[in-house]
Design a protein around this nucleic acid. Structure first.
Length: 376
RNA sequence: GCGGAAUUGGUGAAGUGGUUAACACGCCGGAUUGUGGCUCCGGUACGCGUGGGUUCGAUCCCCACAUUUCGCC
């Protein structure tokens, strides 16, 4: 089937910028706001595709840079594309490798042409360009491709960020010019750190290039405080068209998803639920818990008694603590299922709150439960 | 019965006659926001088998005892 993903705005919440929307894909229709689990290496770590589906996830992520290194885009292409390769019949978004320009900072060199990396696996020298990133994503055959951007730390100087976003805009255009997968949407990325003028400039110029959707990047990557992150969103959103999907990259924590939705963001992705899971943490209505803590040794209740996930329906904290303590992967799998389902339920509730026009009340209620007295 | 060796935290162990007894594992906590890493960061023996002695000072030297272990009869 020949079909590029479409977005439809359904409703705006009365007192905030929160919006309810619909994404139509060849795999089905999904509502936004939505949380997208991350599956960097064509697998949401520890989960089978059936288990991903069971969390009610829609779009999932994979990563261009990592799949380029292993197994290589040609192999994925020969397998029939990412969906067939990993047996996932839902929408997939590929990140461009831009974030790796940031996260693999000690082994890279940025120039106008692109980014020279040192392959962390074998020391090979690699060169990724905007054109190459798009070409790889074309071959991976994801449903949404991301422009190749530089993702500088929020703490970088205004001067540096200015020249960085200008280059990122040139890179976005170069990528768009070679993009030729008719079934694949292509998104542009707004950068600019915490600065109002830079966000405005980046958003305006990126929108001029006319992408299928826009994302806000460079956020939550530098230990910057939450206010700086919320400002980055506030400074970007007004310049993005209402009829296109808005994606806040790499976020995040439950409270940040709520704040993002209130500010007009539609989709989010984050490694947090799966990483927390592997490290023995569970997100619950009453806050994050570390299942390794002694106090759960004889706790025969579910991770979160308000949760409908497979882990909470069938297993106790005591058992999951035992698994994590023994380093059994089934523990990480149960926690991953739970944490992903937790964030997806959060977005389900946010959609309902938008529908009911009471999202600010929902936020207060959430904070009261999640943080108790600890919220400043 | 005789002779030798050993005895340090929950475990495996380093170590020195003189400030806070190394390290690892475990245990107890914490971190984690477009995922290189079951990762990272803290805390965790007021005491070095027991009792004496030598010394200004002993976990480290000496003696006795206990326990463990090896060899011999």
């Amino acid at each position: 089937m020949n079909m590029k993903l479409k977005y439809e705005l359904l409703k705006e919440e009365k007192s905030t910028k929160a919006r309810l929307g619909k994404i139509i894909t060849k795999y089905g229709k999904y509502q936004t706001p939505m949380f997208m689990p991350v599956g960097t290496l064509a697998t949401v770590k520890t989960l089978a595709p059936e288990e991903i589906k069971e969390t009610k996830a829609g779009i999932i992520l994979a990563n261009t840079y990592h799949l380029w290194l292993r197994p290589g885009e040609d192999i994925v292409n020969e397998a029939g594309g990412l969906h067939k390769f990993m047996n996932y019949d839902g929408p997939i978004l590929t990140d461009s490798g831009g974030f790796q320009v940031f996260s693999l900072a000690n082994s890279k060199d940025i120039s106008e042409e692109g980014v020279a990396f040192k392959n962390q696996l074998n020391g090979d020298r690699l060169f990724l360009t905007p054109e190459k990133s798009i070409e790889i994503q074309n071959k991976l055959d994801s449903d949404i491709a991301m422009s190749f951007d530089e993702c500088p730390p929020a703490s970088a100087s205004h001067d540096y960020l200015k020249q960085s976003i200008e280059r990122t805009i040139r890179w976005a255009k170069r990528g768009k010019d070679v993009h030729n997968n008719k079934n694949q949407a292509l998104f542009g990325i707004v950068q600019g750190g915490p600065h109002e003028d830079l966000r405005k400039y980046s958003a305006t110029e990126t929108v001029k290039l006319d992408f299928d959707g826009y994302s806000i990047g460079g956020v939550a990557n530098d230990g910057e405080d939450k206010e700086a992150m919320y400002k980055a969103i506030d400074y970007s959103i007004p310049y993005l068209p209402k009829d296109k999907l808005r994606y806040l990259m790499g976020v995040g924590e439950p409270i940040d998803i709520i704040e993002g939705v209130i500010r007009g963001v539609d989709i989010f992705d984050c490694v947090l639920p799966t990483r927390l899971a592997r490290h023995g943490n569970a997100l619950t209505k009453y806050g994050k818990i570390n299942i390794k803590n002694k106090k759960y040794k004889k706790d025969f209740t579910p991770l979160d008694s308000t949760c409908d996930c497979y882990a909470c329906q069938n297993y106790t904290r005591s058992y999951i603590k035992h698994l994590i303590s023994c380093n059994e992967t089934f523990g990480a799998r149960l926690l991953s299922i739970h944490n992903i389902r937790f964030l997806i339920r959060l977005t389900e509730e946010l959609r309902q709150a938008i529908e009911n026009d009471n999202i600010l009340e929902y936020k207060q209620e959430f904070i009261k439960n999640y943080y108790g007295d600890k919220y400043e």
